[in-house]
Design a protein around this nucleic acid. Structure first.
Lengths: 209, 209
DNA sequence: ATATTAATAAAACGAACGTTCAATTAATTC
DNA sequence: GAATTAATTGAACGTTCGTTTTATTAATAT
């Protein structure tokens, strides 16, 4: 056999991406073989190389697109208001929603960095830093405006991101808590952590106007 | 050649453990080969099998001892006082100190769980759950006593642990912040996050008496 | 000194890995 | 309907993997 009936490059590539995210998230990048991935897609291993020149390039593509998606998501969700509380609330809501929706891809982007070449690692870290910078700006503005009580902006940003991203470790859709409940709780924890002067519910109303 | 002059089983085993933690933390369990590990120790790959029957057993041993060490550390540091604020402060201080001291081992224990067999994974998770249970008990007591303001004890516990353990991702000894400074900042963030009624510095004094 | 035990080296095992290549067939274009 | 292009298979490449076996030497006990 060779080309199969109904075969379509675009569909196959999409299926490869999807299967790769799932397999790498579950088994790890090193533990997943190209033959395993091919079997999941329903194709022979050689066919994968039509879409991705190497295994690492596949990993890199998945990671880059995930990080670009995160930045784009925040670019859309970012509010215009200068109010730090409202901006922080928007950041938290977007972060949690995005990461819960893409649990597997987040796992891949966070856990498999060491499998990238130095050059590709730098590219991913650049995107990540740009995203974290947004949070630091919000925290700094809030601290300067007296809206937040923060000891160390950089450290607080890292703590918040670790806390929020950690959701994907234990959260399972359809279990005890809904996404909305989780987000609400994380919002109030965040606001207390940064010593926000206004409760987040007020901030929410502010943003709504 | 065969047995080398000055060779000693205990020393070799210790060297294997140490080298394995470092290599797995840096490269990942799957990416580290037994030959690489042997080279790091200065020995042939076959010699490793005198101390660990399989590669997975080696990983499991490292993880189990790390988790047991964590539980033992908390067992020693745990204060007698019923005051939730003092107990939470002790938990945070112990957690951060332990994890910063054992950055590499923590990395291994957190990142390589998927490389364990189902049975061994269960054993490690049991230890982890026991440790997390201690934090939940502190939070519950504090919430019931009115010392804390907590929406959801389980969720708060997970958020705190993710936040605290996240230190090992970015903290590098000898950089901008000292361990003491980091710990102090994380303590105040923690106390604000749980809505502690007393500042942690007061709690510290309470514990000191 | 001799016998025994501990610690290692050296070589080999089959299996699996990422990747390449040539052949083959489906879909598309002319 | 013939020619071309797109998509895939099947087989093979050399390498590396975890692990086992056997032989050899150092340290220890007798």
């Amino acid at each position: 056999m060779a080309r199969t009936t109904g075969s379509d490059g675009e569909k196959t590539e999409a299926a490869v991406r999807e299967a790769a995210v799932g397999l790498i998230a579950r088994l790890g990048y090193e533990a997943m073989s190209m033959r395993q991935l091919a079997a999941e897609v329903g194709v022979q291993a050689a066919a994968l190389y039509r879409y991705f020149p190497t295994k690492e390039e596949l990993l890199f593509t998945l990671m880059r697109e995930h990080m670009e998606g995160l930045l784009e998501s925040w670019g859309t969700a970012r509010p215009i208001t200068p109010d730090p509380v409202a901006r922080l609330a928007a950041y938290v809501e977007n972060h949690i929603a995005f990461h819960i929706e893409r649990r597997h891809a987040t796992h891949v982007s966070n856990m498999e960095l060491r499998s990238l070449s130095h050059e590709r690692l730098t590219q991913i870290l650049k995107l990540r830093t740009a995203y974290e910078k947004e949070l630091r700006a919000i925290l700094r503005d809030g601290a300067e405006a007296g809206a937040f009580e923060i000891d160390d902006v950089g450290l607080t940003a890292m703590a918040l991101i670790q806390m929020m991203t950690g959701v994907i470790v234990w959260f399972r859709p359809g279990e005890r808590l809904s996404i909305a409940e989780v987000t609400t709780t994380y919002l109030s924890m965040t606001m207390r952590l940064v010593g926000a002067k206004i409760a987040y519910s007020d901030a929410r109303q502010l943003r709504m106007r």
